[in-house]
């Protein structure tokens, strides 16, 4: 078995916020019909997490379950456990129309940490999304665009955001976040 490595091996940059590549993060894409109670109930039982409401996430233990679209969930879990989660989902959901895939190594994750206003400002420089606290509160998922690539962002707390993007653009996103958080470049909007 080869050794798993994350896209940027935990690279970090320090501006008015700290940008850190989050290292190995387990991610499992789950697709299915939320309107089907059998699907919802089985996912909840298998993961110990309820299917989140629109744009929300549910958290328990080491795992998080994020609402990505009306038929797509993203499970965030320890990297080494992603395959086991997929195995459990595939077995438990057999007979129910669904899809569960380990996408951990197809993605990169970043942590953006600093002051509450700094975190929102660094991200708002790169995304057209409305990042005011009244529109994107802590714990809500926003899929959007960072400069020229798709990304999902959410705030874990007021001073800490997570960014998930495709692995192939990890270097680009890291450079974007580094540039956006250059000291002295704060827009001071938030």
């Amino acid at each position: 078995m080869s050794e798993a490595v994350s896209a940027l091996a935990g690279s970090s940059a320090h501006g008015f916020v700290d940008v850190t590549e989050a290292g190995l993060v387990g991610m499992v894409t789950i697709r299915g019909d939320y309107g089907n109670t059998e699907f919802r109930d089985k996912v909840a039982t298998l993961l110990g997490l309820n299917v989140p409401d629109q744009r929300q996430m549910t958290t328990g233990g080491t795992d998080k379950l994020l609402w990505m679209s009306p038929d797509e969930l993203l499970l965030v879990c320890p990297h080494g456990e992603a395959d086991a989660r997929v195995g459990a989902l595939s077995a438990g959901l057999s007979g129910v129309h669904h899809l569960a895939v380990n996408v951990s190594d197809a993605r990169a994750a970043f942590c953006v940490k600093g002051t509450a206003s700094g975190v929102r400002e660094a991200l708002a420089k790169l995304s057209p999304a409305d990042l005011r606290a009244s529109v994107l509160p802590v714990g809500e998922v926003r899929r959007t665009r960072l400069a020229q690539v798709p990304a999902a962002i959410w705030l874990e707390s007021e001073d800490r955001a997570m960014v998930v993007c495709f692995r192939s653009v990890a270097g680009y996103v890291f450079d974007l976040l580094t540039q956006a958080s250059k000291p002295g470049s704060e827009p001071r909007y938030f």
Binding site: A129, V135, R143, R145
Partner: peptide, 12 residues
């Protein structure tokens, strides 16, 4: 209408 978010034209 599916996400309920206000999308900028460049996200569409």
């Amino acid at each position: 209408p599916y996400c309920g978010v206000a999308c900028d034209e460049t996200e569409l």
